[in-house]
Design a protein around this nucleic acid. Sequence first.
DNA 1: GATGAATGAGTGTTCATTCAT
DNA 2: TATGAATGAACACTCATTCAT
Lengths: 207, 207, 207, 207
Amino acid sequence: MAPKRVDRQARRDEILSAAVLLFAERGYAATRIEDVAAAAGIAKGSVYLYYESREALLTAVFERWAERSRAVVEAALSGERPAMQRLEELLRSVIALLAGEPGLTRVMLDLWAAGRRSEGGAPPPFDMAAVYREYRTVVAALLREAAEEGAVRAGAGEPEAAVVVGAIEGCLVQWVVDPEFPFAEIADQMVEVCTRGVLRGAAGGAA
Amino acid sequence: MAPKRVDRQARRDEILSAAVLLFAERGYAATRIEDVAAAAGIAKGSVYLYYESREALLTAVFERWAERSRAVVEAALSGERPAMQRLEELLRSVIALLAGEPGLTRVMLDLWAAGRRSEGGAPPPFDMAAVYREYRTVVAALLREAAEEGAVRAGAGEPEAAVVVGAIEGCLVQWVVDPEFPFAEIADQMVEVCTRGVLRGAAGGAA
Amino acid sequence: MAPKRVDRQARRDEILSAAVLLFAERGYAATRIEDVAAAAGIAKGSVYLYYESREALLTAVFERWAERSRAVVEAALSGERPAMQRLEELLRSVIALLAGEPGLTRVMLDLWAAGRRSEGGAPPPFDMAAVYREYRTVVAALLREAAEEGAVRAGAGEPEAAVVVGAIEGCLVQWVVDPEFPFAEIADQMVEVCTRGVLRGAAGGAA
Amino acid sequence: MAPKRVDRQARRDEILSAAVLLFAERGYAATRIEDVAAAAGIAKGSVYLYYESREALLTAVFERWAERSRAVVEAALSGERPAMQRLEELLRSVIALLAGEPGLTRVMLDLWAAGRRSEGGAPPPFDMAAVYREYRTVVAALLREAAEEGAVRAGAGEPEAAVVVGAIEGCLVQWVVDPEFPFAEIADQMVEVCTRGVLRGAAGGAA
DNA sequence: GATGAATGAGTGTTCATTCAT
DNA sequence: TATGAATGAACACTCATTCAT
């Protein structure tokens, strides 16, 4: 009549954090449920009280990241500043988010990979492609707005947005592949190259 | 001469091609040695006559790709054109290489992932980080050269190079994650954004 | 008196009934303690307040059935009618019992199976063989009595009793294996075949 | 080029025999794949080279038994003797088959049980009910034929057939549950009770 | 060289049972 | 007494690798 009380969500988070740590360290493929359990300080079977399966853990990582990502995007977009300013802010926010969560970020590789899956049967448990689609849409919208405001070259659209998004993700890749890579430290250059390019005599106002 | 050699190499290549195909399709983790053997039209055990282990196959994929990559870089760098022209050519070549080998390219995910590995013991069987380091070095060198020629903003160096390299890799990611993504079709925008940025009136007639 | 007792027994019965239902539906092997608990409307752990173990549940099913069975046998045997009449009554009672408790009956399979068990170590928790031994003994006794009364062929004994008992159990098997099988509906034929056989010109009085 | 040769069917049979032995001894539920492998003198994984799954092993037992059963039935039915003679022969053959394969026979329990399965999803992997349906059909046909020949009571049909079939299965149950039970030894009584019943003076010299 | 049967370590998942509340 | 979270032994199945032929 006095059932044991447990903060389910808290426990879920603990487990997930342990999983993120391990996934980041050695990758999803090399991480056993038992490792996660041990890292979370519980028994193997207990993981299943909170997550349906090993894959559900990866999905949860995706969700944690997607949530963070969404929050950052929304925060960056609100406000009345000029579009270009909001874009720059968005880029800096995303970079800061990624730089601030190295664990979550290094799992990205596995999230990208899990988005695939064919043959086997089961469809991917989450839609990574949609995330990038949305990023591009948002950035493209800002670019168009900025073009209207005269700040950006007319005609800039999704392709340009893809490159901007890509620049960040691509730096991320370099960081994931090489922890020495100074991802956080080159935020300025990411923004600058995206806005002004590398050529000399680039237009004034930006960055 | 060494007819056996020729034969042997041919067979190695066949197997590797089969492996690339499968790795691209379903990922390294989901590809069994037996699948590779079947796709190559040989028996499971025979794979081991040509490759030490399953992982050696992935390493070989890396090597095939690194080789192609090196060739492209070298080709793009030679010649006497202005540095900026060579850089643009390099970017276009790399993009063309990637776009032209979708299979190899989609394995990139697994190559990135295999570059990690800790705890387990064995060190990564190949050094992905080195590849990007080299890319950056080459691009940075071109940027500096171009700066001396007055084409590029003074001070551009490794960080800017990282962003340029990242832009391509980041678009690659979007393509790998979403086969619908028009990677090859946005080559121009990759180059343009990297060189001139998105701002209006940025850098003159270049690119 | 012992209100707790009453309560306790009532609860035990509820749980057991839930178990019988589930065992009948999907078999003992496929029935989890948690299923039983849920079906009984209590928590998993509470089952253990009433039954030592999962196996104890099966044993209790056996006991419930053995009890019913014993009651029926005793009821059928009492009285002063001719032995043959008592035998027929016994058969009909047992058939009615089984037909009237489809749930309990369909668990028979698991009770038979649990009677085995070797190697593992623990001896069977209840003695199914003894039940059939007793059935045979009772029936054989009736047959002998009936023989003395001139109703039954002289010499009929345990073997004949086994066949009579078997006829019922065998029909039961057909029913358990195939719910469409009209077990209850062929009570007459079970009795008739056992007493008069199938041959033409069988002696009068029976059935 | 000289692939190892193995008599696949022979190996399958060896494994199956080992399985039958163990299933008979301790039941399907208590028999681990590893036990079967050990009993067959091979490694765990090798079992899977010959059988898809643990359940496939049980299905194979069913098939081995169904095959034997079918052969016996066919053999008993052929010939030109009076129907009643063929029926008796059929009964004796089936009894002999069962008595001669104690292992196979004691697995019957698990075959009966596996014929059920609900809820879980997957349909039963084989159809035990169909076997008994066929038995009844065959016996009923013989009874009708015998009735036309004047040997059997007019009107005897499926219900009577069910009882006859049941008598054998029911004795089987008693044997399975109690290895001491003299199944083989009471063949005569099974036949006699089924044909002439137990009543005195019942049906004349038949059987 | 080529084969594919054999191996057995490795792992996700289940579930009876325990026990703190 | 009742609960249900926690445990961890158990087990089916997979697959890289080996090796007899």
